[in-house]
Design a protein around this nucleic acid. Structure first.
Lengths: 218, 218
DNA sequence: GTCTATATCCCGATAGAC
DNA sequence: GTCTATCGGGATATAGAC
């Protein structure tokens, strides 16, 4: 950070400046109101300049999403590692999922507004995503030794549940009531524990008819 | 519906034509690429005409969302009523949730891209939404007699889970593989059954320490 | 190769004429 | 109610300066 920083922008590292600036602007404006033109203006470059580094607006957003996904994955891994027991680990991950969405709504929404479509193409995006799924899979594996299919289903269920709480919370624009965030995060953790305990119903298709009585009121 | 329908469009009922056309255009273009200008062009009116009926683009989308929510609610109610047992009813609703999202991705996404913000203001939008929550609450109530708080938590968990599966599925743009839809729908139903069976962990906060062993590998 | 300048086209929204 | 005209902005494409 000595010689290169004489002309921090305008020269040298516009690509990195674009990603940095885009992340900031996203936080301020949200994905919908984010504009390449405003970003260019802020960086003091011409509106066409970004196109030397990114094919279009969405490609820049995808680059931001890669970084966001990395942070997201780190947050989840950190949450996960704080708990000793497997159930706790998964519940903590669900809680972390919701909290990340609430604390970084712009980053969270950019990841999921990109469309998983590009996650297939973009190798970086895919890697970042697979790292998250790996963390989850590792925590789930302890519950389903020797049953990879069941483990995958359980992991999907936990991911879907956490994502549902996060998405429903995030759909409310503006600031969140911290109490709502806590509530949603705890609920997501509770739902995760509930899924783990009732998980037999996930893969036992016969449960539908066989043990239907098990879920009835007492 | 006799005298008014002589000139269905262009005159007399532009408002209805806008809502109809918007729903169609949304299916073709998606929420993001939907434009009032293109809709106006299709209906053969000036770009300023819609503003006599809707304050802005979002207000028109909100009107479409009201209709979409009505259809969504009907679909869920229909699914729910096909099952006899309470557990089945809830599983069927979760399945219906995912299937609606997959079959009408444009309508589904317009509902949740509006932001629950407006659902508070817009009385119509709120009513449509509350009807859905009512259907769910009724089905859940059978599991939690005399425990309204627990019933609400259970309902939220089921909604979040179904929403998560639906949202993750819908985030992939383009057409869905029907097999994926079936899989996701069945998984959502299974997760719902799992939530019902493990539901004690939802509201029993002490479960975290007390019965942590119950969820451990055998 | 990177960036500026410029130009095109589309969109949302408003004001005022008919 | 609807149209015409118009403003402000944004996404891109191209040409040329460095």
């Amino acid at each position: 950070m000595s010689s290169k920083r004489a002309k921090p922008y305008h020269h040298g590292d516009l690509k990195a400046a674009l990603i940095d600036g885009a992340a900031e602007l996203l936080v301020e404006r949200g994905v919908r109101r984010f504009s390449l033109a405003e970003l260019s203006r802020r960086l003091g470059v011409a509106v066409a300049a970004p196109y030397r580094h990114f094919a279009n607006r969405d490609e820049l957003l995808a680059a931001v999403a890669v970084r966001a996904l990395d942070q997201f994955g780190d947050a989840l891994a950190a949450q996960s590692s704080e708990a000793d027991q497997p159930e706790q680990r998964l519940a903590a991950m669900a809680e972390g999922y919701v909290r990340f969405a609430a604390e970084q709504p712009a980053l969270f929404s950019v990841v999921f507004s990109i469309g998983l479509d590009k996650k297939k193409r973009h190798s970086e995006l895919r890697e970042a995503y697979e790292e998250i799924e790996g963390t989850l899979a590792a925590a789930v594996a302890e519950f389903c030794p020797g049953d990879p299919v069941g483990a995958q289903q359980l992991a999907d269920a936990i991911e879907a549940t956490a994502h549902g709480y996060a998405a429903l919370l995030t759909d409310q624009p503006g600031a969140f009531d911290p109490a709502d965030v806590d509530h949603a995060a705890e609920q997501a953790a509770g739902a995760t524990r509930a899924l783990l305990r009732g998980r037999a119903a996930l893969w036992d298709q016969d449960a539908r008819s066989e043990d239907a009585g098990a879920g009835q009121p007492t």
